[in-house]
Amino acid sequence: MLEIRNLCAEIDGKAILRGIDLDVKAGEVHAIMGPNGSGKSTLASILAGRDGYTITAGSVRYQGQDLLALPPEERARAGVFLAFQYPVEIPGVSNIYLLKAAVNARRRHQGIPELDAMDFLALVKDRVRFMEMDESMLYRAVNEGFSGGEKKRNEILQMTLLEPTLALLDETDSGLDIDALKVVSKGVNSLRTPERAMILVTHYQRLLDYIKPDCVHVLAGGRIVKSGGAELALELERQGYAWLGGEAAGVAR
């Protein structure tokens, strides 16, 4: 589904990604771990289409197309979803408005009829209940004044409505209490099907107790320095990054 080859990117002349290779197949869940500042969010942002980065080498193919050639909205409509590490507040725009606009943009792209107000409301209320959120959140401005945990939950609410083919979750577990972590994991797991794939960026093994990954990668200094199965996360939890030596240790220090 996703093939990243030798992806190199810089910001303001500073190299951030220095040759990423990653293959994600339909049905798989990959976890990316790694020290602060190693480039995890940069990778997720580039996949979602944020500008401000210069791609200096490499390629990304998603379902056979050149992902980097698409503007962010087309990637979203084609099924790429990024749950932001820091969800953005949009005052004056209600959550439900954004959800409806997003769902219908995706449906138009898929060539299925847009949902009318009634059907949409029924759907969104169902997902709000599933995410154990208060309905009043729908009528508040997007993320404005939401607590850290509420913002993360709201990201997953959007995801359960958009039903992406490729979900990128950037530290969705950070800042969540135990109960919220369970709800968020439930949301993520509900989308695990053989047709979909996910990349979870996380610092903590804890999330992976709830969402079991097929592969775990360590990103350090803009490169994937180690890949393994779920057991790699346990190893990292016990030992940190130092034992990996080289860049992982250097950056983690």
């Binding site: 962010p72 979203a76 979803f81 932001f84 969800p87 943009a105 958009l162």
Partner: peptide, 10 residues
């Protein structure tokens, strides 16, 4: 970017 990443056009 946040809005476009949700599928809204520019």
């Amino acid at each position: 970017f946040y809005l476009r990443s949700r599928g809204l056009d520019e």
